[in-house]
Simulated assay, not measured.
Amino acid sequence: MKIMAKFMLVLSLFASILAGCGTAQDDSGKGTDPGQNEEETASEGQDGQDQSEEQDPAEEGTVDEGDSVIRILEQNMTYTVNGEAKEETAFLKHSDNQNYSMYVLPAYELTAEEPNKDVLYLSENDQVFMRIELLPNDADWNMIEENTKAQLGDVSENVQTSEAPSDDFYKGANVMKAEGDGEKVSAYLVKNEELSLKLTLFNKEEADHEEAFLQMAKTIMKEEPQK
C-alpha cells in the first residue's frame, strides 16, 4: 500500500508539472507575433513622419496642379507712400487684356488701356498710375530703350539712369527717370526667365506711389492664354 501511495504521489506531481508547462506555453503564445508588432510600429512611425512632413502648398503662395500653377487669392504686402510705411492685404487680379495675374492693393485698380497695355492707377487720383506692357521674348531691346528715353524726354531733357531695386524680379533691369513741373516719370525695362516687361510709372511730387507700384509689379506672373 505504501508503494502504491508513493507511486500515486509521484504521478500527481508529474501531472502538475505538465499542467504548469502548458499554461506557461499558452501565456507566451497569447497576443500578436512580436515581429508583427515591430513592423506595425515602424509603419505607424513612418506614417506619422510622412504626415508631419507634409506642407500646405498654399503657404508658399502657389499650388502646383499638373503643368499649371494656382495662385492663392491674397497676400500681405509692405510698402511706403511718401515715406510712410504701410502694410495691407493685396488681392489677386487677372488681366482681361494680357495674359498675366498680379496682386493689387485696395487703393488701386487694374484696367485695360489699349491692346497689350494695362494701367494700374490710384483710385482717388487716376493721374497717378503705372502702365504695364508685356513684351515678346524676341523684342528689339535697343529700339525699346531708345523709344523709352524719347518718351521720358517729353517730361524733361535730363533723362537719368538709375539703379534697379535689389529684388530678384528687377535684377538687371534698365531704369530711366525724368522729372519736371511736379511730374515724376520712371521706366523699368525688365527681362528675366519668366517674362519680358516694360513698366512706366507716373507719379507726382505730392503723391509718390512708386514704391507701392513696384511692390505690386513684382508679383506679376505670366499665364497661359485661355482657350
Rank of each mutant, 00 (worst) to 15 (best):
A5G: 03
A5W: 08
F7H: 08
L9H: 09
S16M: 14
I17V: 15
G22Y: 11
T23M: 15
Q25S: 12
T32I: 14
G35V: 10
G35R: 12
G35K: 12
Q36V: 14
N37S: 13
E38T: 15
E40V: 14
S43E: 14
E53K: 04
E54D: 11
E54F: 11
D56F: 04
E60T: 14
V63L: 12
D67E: 13
S68H: 09
S68M: 12
I70Y: 07
E74R: 13
M77C: 06
G83C: 04
G83E: 06
E87W: 02
T89V: 15
A90P: 01
K93Y: 07
D96R: 07
Q98E: 09
Y100E: 03
Y100T: 02
S101W: 03
A112G: 13
A112H: 05
E113D: 11
N116C: 04
N116E: 13
L120G: 00
N125R: 06
Q127T: 14
Q127W: 08
F129H: 10
M130Q: 01
E133W: 07
L134V: 09
L134M: 13
L135W: 03
P136L: 08
D138E: 11
D140V: 08
D140C: 05
W141F: 11
W141D: 01
M143H: 10
I144W: 01
T148M: 07
A150Q: 14
G153L: 04
S156M: 06
E157A: 09
N158R: 10
V159N: 02
S162C: 04
S166Q: 12
S166L: 08
D168N: 12
F169T: 02
K171C: 04
G172S: 05
N174G: 03
A178W: 00
A178F: 02
A178G: 02
A178N: 01
S186M: 05
A187W: 03
N192M: 05
N192H: 06
E194W: 09
K204H: 12
K204W: 09
K204E: 13
E205N: 10
E206G: 03
E206I: 06
A207Y: 03
A207M: 09
F213W: 01
F213C: 00
E224P: 01
Q226H: 10
